[in-house]
Simulated scan of single mutants.
Amino acid sequence: MHLPRWYVKPKTLGAGGTIDLDEYEAEALPARRQLVTSRHLLPVEQVADQWSARGRTSDVKDLSLTVEIDGRPYAPAFLLDPTLDPVAVEHLALVLSELSAWSKWQFFTSKNGSLGGDTPLDAIRKGNRDGANRAARAFLDR
């Protein structure tokens, strides 16, 4: 599987095939900072305010999509995309609740063969909630 640059795989494994998490995070940090610079990730307070203004009663933090970069919490800008059904996004976030926020980011933003090459976000935009849901369950099983 091809992983985006922000989801950097460590170059080396430690003794016994273990991953040095500090090295992993250090390798991923520049690409993750770029997500903030490009406004793909926004300060969580900004997203939370606009999310509730969209009539959503769930807390953005409850969706477990919040990531931390340089000690600050950020949330995906796609939560504010008016072309996305927020109920479908909430549902998929809950289906994926056992995963880390970065794994959820990977799911939502990566092209998926079972969705005809669309990302799950594209599938939601096109009304293919069932396909996105199946893709989420398959992602959990990987």
Rank of each mutant, 00 (worst) to 15 (best):
T119G: 08
Q50P: 00
L3K: 07
S114P: 02
I69Y: 04
G55F: 07
S103T: 11
T83D: 14
A77P: 05
A26W: 04
D118P: 00
D130G: 10
L41W: 12
W105K: 05
A28K: 01
T18Y: 09
A135N: 05
M1P: 02
R39L: 06
R54H: 10
A88I: 09
A48K: 10
A48Q: 14
G71R: 08
M1C: 08
L140W: 04
A75M: 11
G116D: 04
Q34M: 09
R56G: 04
Y7Q: 07
S58A: 10
H40S: 12
L79G: 03
A132P: 06
L63E: 11
I69E: 01
K126S: 14
T83A: 15
S52H: 15
I69Q: 01
A31Y: 10
D59H: 12
A88W: 10
P120C: 08
V60R: 04
L99Y: 03
L3E: 14
P30V: 01
R33G: 00
G17R: 10
F78P: 05
Q106F: 15
S103L: 03
T83V: 11
L94N: 15
L92V: 11
Y74N: 05
L41V: 08
F108M: 05
F139P: 06
D118G: 05
S103R: 15
L115Y: 11
V60L: 02
S103Y: 09
L92H: 13
Y74F: 15
A75V: 08
A26R: 13
S64Q: 13
H40Y: 13
V47C: 10
W102R: 02
H91L: 13
K61H: 14
P30N: 07
F107T: 06
L92W: 13
L63R: 06
A123M: 07
W102S: 01
H40C: 09
L99K: 13
D20Y: 00
N133M: 11
